[in-house]
Design a binder for these strands. Structure first.
Length: 465
RNA sequence: GGCGCUAUGGUGCAACGGCUAGCACAUCACCCUUUCAAGGUGGAAAUGCGGGUUCGAUUCCCGCUAGCGCUACCA
């Protein structure tokens, strides 16, 4: 947990991150380790680098060096807005090129201070950061398992801060020190870190360690092709859980952003993904997050995963909607619940579908969908048929699919009406919506008592109009 | 501004010099269906632009353009 920036660190967010990882089914063998707990080792490392001549005390004030005195968060927002605005405007030849930033490298001359001067300033208690001294010439190279061999001219890199003047390490220092201490073999991270990697390679060497294998993976972009952020709405993993996505589906979708298992198969189990994965199969182009495809994955998992695996998710959804009944937790109730979920799931795309259009299967309190009513309750003679149907079902000896089918068709024949008219009207009467499983399966799931009661209730509703 | 990365249908990926550029999502049509889905069949839809190299370029090289990233005492 790279919580090195005490000013911006939000401890309460950490638990959310861990929870999201767990939800995704991603676990870990050690830790988590908090960098804020290891400050001493970073200070020691920074001091070692400085003592060996690869770094120096920098007495510049942070603001003067960074060139802006706006609060960091505001600056970030401004930058994001500016980027968004620029992307939206996009008119060619719009004058006013953005102001060139000042070259930072020449802005700090602290590295030319003599050892005595540095010591004197320190003795006077002047605040100082430790800044890495990047060689003025030569180049730094490293191997990236995704982007291939890389080489960057050292003069392109500016002297970067290792230890802030408040004693806290920067990301660059913390990451490298930890990876050395933890004997990390592969550093796999977002491609936004590609440009900073040579600095870290320099740091590894200054610390007397060989750099690990790096692998930079493409970024995920929003529909507007800018980096996924708060501006795109749901961005935290937790928000997808709340929307009713299954972790299996979300994980599968994510795995295919920037990676291909080869071949045409897209639905993959975790085991298959692990077997097929290789860094060589990782793409170098940023991927746009496609919500529609995510939903498709969710639908596929909703329909194909073992029903026992799905049950706990539906249970949680029903609890959330206030529809859950303890009797569905075990025994005969559990069996009914399982069969009903199985009946409903071919028509679901997100978990809340179970409590929305599937509501009437779990509760007697439901409304008639106006559109469905409009479409299937037009026939005036329904006012006569509904009570007759109710009586027919009340008197029906057996309660199963075929018997329910026969009762309805017999009435349709007797009344000289197409069975479809009665079927559609009855569906709306007993579940309130047009989106539902086949009628007679629905009747079996609901049971005689509820079907008869709801037919009478629908009749009363019709008569009242 | 500087440096870097990337560029195949609307989206995600295949094709890593050689079939009529393949698959999936989305989209359109039809089939199936006594609702709605699912499913099936078919259609439309792409190699950013310009130069090279080569018998042959989506693929290799250069330029342009565009997008993204880095250029912080953020990570």
């Amino acid at each position: 947990v790279e919580d090195t920036d005490v000013e911006r660190n939000r401890p309460e967010l950490v638990e959310g991150i861990l929870e999201s990882l767990r939800w995704l089914g991603l676990d870990w063998d050690e830790g988590p380790v908090f960098q804020s707990q290891r400050l001493e080792s970073y200070r020691a490392a920074a001091e070692r680098v400085r003592a060996s001549g690869h770094a120096y005390w920098c007495f510049c004030a942070p603001s003067s060096y960074a060139g802006a005195d706006a609060a960091p968060e505001e600056a970030e927002e401004d930058a994001a807005e500016a980027t968004a605005a620029a992307g939206a405007a996009k008119s060619p030849g719009t004058g006013a090129t953005p102001q060139a930033k000042t070259l930072r490298k020449s802005a700090c001359s602290c590295h030319s201070l003599s050892t005595e001067e540095q010591a004197a300033k320190r003795a006077r208690g002047e605040a100082a950061a430790i800044r890495f001294h990047v060689p003025q010439s030569g180049s730094t190279q490293f191997q990236d398992a995704v982007f291939g061999p890389r080489e960057v001219a050292n003069e392109e890199m500016e002297d970067f801060v290792l230890l802030r003047s408040n004693g806290a390490p920067t990301y660059q220092l913390g990451a490298v020190v930890d990876d050395i201490a933890m004997d990390i073999s592969h550093v796999i991270r977002g491609a936004d870190h590609l440009s900073n990697t040579p600095k870290q390679v320099l740091l590894y060497r200054a610390l007397g360690a060989e750099p690990p294998i790096f692998a930079h993976v493409p970024l995920i972009l929003g529909p507007d092709r800018s980096r996924m952020s708060k501006r795109h709405g749901a961005t935290s993993v937790a928000s997808y859980k709340e929307e009713g996505f299954l972790p299996e589906a979300f994980r599968n979708f994510l795995a295919l952003l920037g990676w291909s298992p080869g071949g045409d198969v897209e639905l993959l189990t975790t085991t298959e993904m692990v077997e097929k994965f290789s860094l060589g199969g990782v793409s170098r182009t940023n991927a746009v997050f496609d919500r529609a495809k995510l939903e498709w994955f969710n639908q596929q998992y909703l329909q194909k995963m073992p029903v026992e695996t799905l049950l706990p998710f539906v249970e949680e959804e029903l609890r959330h909607a206030g529809l859950w009944r303890e009797e569905w937790g075990s025994g005969a109730g559990r069996e009914w619940f399982s069969r009903t979920v199985d009946l409903l799931r071919p028509r679901t795309r997100l978990l809340p579908d179970f409590s929305h259009w599937g509501r009437a299967f779990f509760s007697d309190e439901f409304e008639y969908d106006p559109a469905a009513r409009e479409k299937f309750w037009k026939e005036p003679r329904l006012a006569e048929w509904l009570p007759k149907l109710a009586e027919g079902y009340a008197a029906q000896p057996e309660w199963n699919h075929d018997a329910c089918d026969k009762t309805l068709r017999d009435l349709a024949a007797a009344e000289n009406v197409k069975a479809g008219v009665l079927i559609n009207a009855t569906r709306v009467a007993i579940v309130g919506v047009a989106v539902a499983p086949p009628l007679f399966d629905t009747m079996v799931a609901l049971g005689r008592e509820r079907v008869v009661g709801r037919l009478r209730r629908a009749h009363a509703h019709l008569a009242a109009r």
